[in-house]
Design a protein around this nucleic acid. Structure first.
Lengths: 226, 226
DNA sequence: TAAATAATTTAGACTAATCTAAATTATTTA
DNA sequence: TAAATAATTTAGATTAGTCTAAATTATTTA
């Protein structure tokens, strides 16, 4: 059985690894966990002793299969709770993170199983991120999604998720009416700043900056030629 | 802000006080929290410094108003979660305690507010215990309930709750089909061991020991003459 | 490639919560 | 009411997680 803190470390290590880095540094983790490098080192030695990570001093860290499985089960719990908060308790998608961060550590297999069933086995959370199954497998990924900033013009595409999960960004999208499931068609692009004029769900006119477009992920969209 | 452990102490002190003891001893608490008396003493000094309890060495302990308010908010959270687990996630009433024990410490006003609303503001939890309102007030108590063992014969009464919350007892009731809301009529009492023959919901014949009857609480029942 | 800088680890300390064993206080009982 | 017993508190230690400051290792740059 792992402590709440150990669970958080495993989860964050997984998430950093997911961003592409093949070896993960002490400082990366310290930044994510919001703690000091020295504390991270201590925890890495502990997780290593438990064989949940492979750790080489001064070099870096990677999850073992056991560690990865635990990380995925925490992410599963987190994303199911987010889904519950948004769908059942009518939270807005920018309000769920901190609560889900607490709820993900509740220990009860049955709770998560029943929750999954109650929510009709959702495949994605409110931000469009895939929910791992009971075995920790991610069956539907955002792989085929691309940033809206790179999508072809004059062709409808569907919002599948976001690349930035910050409250500020989510609130902005919420205000504009953009959420996973929405249909977007790019009308024009201002070549000077790469900002986009859009049609949202076939009716609403919108203009968004390139920075925003880069953080909206869409599918059913061909990549525009460079 | 109080730690999870502090919350548990406050909650247990409240529950012991509720059982009628006007002053609460270190050993009472140690038994409830499942810890050693020395640890309790440490915590009492801490809670006293925070003015959440009144504590006199070698004498005993009582909650202050602030302490009581916190205890009641934890009990509110616990009972709302139990309700959610039973009503929404289809847990049996003997399965909810341990999970609710964890969930009660999740910090989010909004979560509890929305949960309360989602459950249509229940007044009682699945065991028939009253759920304190947002202000920590208990509006409907089990005051008028009496043990089934003391109820008048040949007169329908309604199960309002239980006096024993142990898993064993709840499972036994579940097996017999007894739950809050059931109608019970006492047919006969075996004078030798005070066991009772009952009619459950007007149809099912049952025979239960005095020990069981003492732990089933019922209302709309006159007390039998001694 | 050697010096400067950055990243990481170690050493030692702190807090919260717990424990055991010893000391103290309260209560019971003979 | 004095001795015996029970309850409680104190003293001192332990564990998990964290921290700062110093030492060590890696990387960059001149």
């Amino acid at each position: 059985m792992n402590t709440l803190t150990e669970e958080n470390y495993l989860k964050e290590i997984y998430k950093i690894a997911e961003e592409g880095d093949d070896y993960i540094t002490t400082n990366d983790i310290a930044r994510k966990i919001n703690t000091k490098a020295a504390s991270v080192t201590d925890m890495l030695r502990k997780l290593s002793a438990k064989k949940l990570i492979r750790y080489k001093k001064y070099y870096g860290v990677a999850l073992t299969d056991r560690g990865k499985k635990i990380a995925l089960s925490i992410i599963r719990r987190h994303r199911l709770w987010e889904m519950f908060l948004v769908k059942t308790l009518k939270f807005k998608w920018d309000e769920v993170h901190d609560v889900a961060e607490q709820l993900e550590h509740i220990r009860s297999e049955k709770l998560i199983q029943h929750m999954d069933e109650f929510l009709s086995f959702p495949k994605f959370d409110p931000h469009g991120d895939p929910i791992p199954d009971v075995n920790g497998k991610i069956n539907f990924s955002k792989e085929k999604s691309i940033p809206l900033s790179e999508a072809k013009h004059d062709k409808n595409c569907e919002v599948t998720g976001v690349a930035d999960h910050s409250v500020a960004f989510l609130q902005l999208l919420d205000k504009s009416g953009i959420a996973p499931g929405c249909k977007i068609k790019i009308k024009t692009m201002e070549s000077y700043d790469k900002s986009l004029s859009l049609l949202l769900n076939g009716k609403k006119q919108l203009h968004i900056s390139n920075q925003i477009a880069k953080n909206i992920l869409v599918s059913n969209a061909e990549r525009r030629n460079k």
